[in-house]
Amino acid sequence: MMKPKVVAVINQKGGTGKTTTTINLGSALSKRGKKVLLVDLDPQSNLSYSLAVTSPAATLADVFLGNKALLDILLEKDGLWIAPGSNELVDIEISLVTQPEREMFLKRILAEATDFDYVLIDCPPSLSVLTLNALTAAEEVLIPLQMEVLTLQGLDQILNTVEKVQNAFNPQLKVRGIVVVMFDVRRKLSQEVLDYLRTNVKENIFNSQIRLNVKLAEAPSFGQSIIDYDPSSKGAADYGALAEEYLSV
């Protein structure tokens, strides 16, 4: 039986390229022959929406409630499998707080997903009970980061949370790396922040940077990954390079 590599894509701020990275890294891995499941754990369901999954018959919330099995809710789109999210995950989050072993639910759910090479979890933009579930279920963490001054402070919080989860629930968890996103080659600050990170952060920083690219912003309106929407764009090239680097490390 296959055991997929489960990867939590986290950043506690919204609008940091988390969903974009989950979708497009997933798509690039799928184009390289990997079977990929994307899990939309964010109550805002941006991942589902970005792949034109707008009113699924059932969602991850139904699986948390025990009304559906994970495999019953999966949808396929452009060679990717999707476990859709929904706004009802807000209620799930509230009810989980009082449950025993509240951090273990997602791990048990994903035990069904044996037929995949990779499971990428798009986490909520907060260090919440749902994110805690993702970190407990995952083997690896990917952190998309913009090169802004405030992201350095945010990075410390993320790394502290990962360390707490390692100590309490998941000693196998490791940070696979930081993905530099929305990189503006024309801004001096972008390069300065990157240089600072390389000097001061012990975590791996992927060499493949995701440059600012208008096509990346357009792709969700068409319900596609950047690789399906515009394979010749910088965004497609950058996520392709990231997938190659990810597979080779």
Rank of each mutant, 00 (worst) to 15 (best):
G14P: 08
I205M: 10
D184V: 03
L74P: 15
S45D: 09
V7Q: 11
S30P: 07
I73T: 08
Y229H: 12
E140N: 04
I178M: 10
A243K: 03
G15E: 12
R108F: 09
V201E: 08
L75N: 14
N204M: 14
F64I: 07
L37Q: 08
V249M: 10
E139V: 06
D115H: 10
S95W: 07
G17P: 11
P4I: 13
L74H: 14
G85R: 01
M182Y: 00
V9S: 05
V165T: 02
L130M: 15
Y49S: 13
F105Y: 10
A28T: 00
V90T: 01
T131N: 13
D91N: 00
R198V: 02
L197A: 09
K34I: 10
S128V: 08
A168M: 04
P84L: 04
V162T: 09
P144E: 02
A237T: 13
G85M: 02
L25S: 08
K107E: 06
A236Q: 06
G17L: 05
N11L: 00
G66C: 02
K18I: 07
Q157T: 07
A113T: 14
V90H: 06
A134Y: 15
Y118I: 00
T22N: 14
K202P: 10
E103S: 01
L70S: 04
E101D: 08
M147Q: 00
K13A: 02
D122E: 10
A217S: 03
S95P: 10
E148C: 00
D72A: 14
P144S: 01
S208A: 13
D42S: 05
M182N: 07
G240Q: 03
L145G: 02
E93L: 03
N204L: 13
T161C: 04
K202D: 07
L96W: 00
A138K: 03
P100I: 14
D91P: 03
E203A: 12
N167D: 13
T22L: 15
E101G: 08
A137L: 09
E192N: 10
I210E: 13
P144C: 00
K31E: 11
L106N: 13
V249R: 11
K3R: 06
L47G: 05
A243L: 07
D91R: 05
L142T: 02
R32A: 04
L74S: 15
A83C: 02
V141S: 03
D228K: 15
F183L: 03
L70V: 11
D238I: 09
S55Y: 15
E245L: 01
N133G: 15
C123H: 07
I158N: 07
T19N: 06
G15S: 06
A219G: 06
N87M: 01
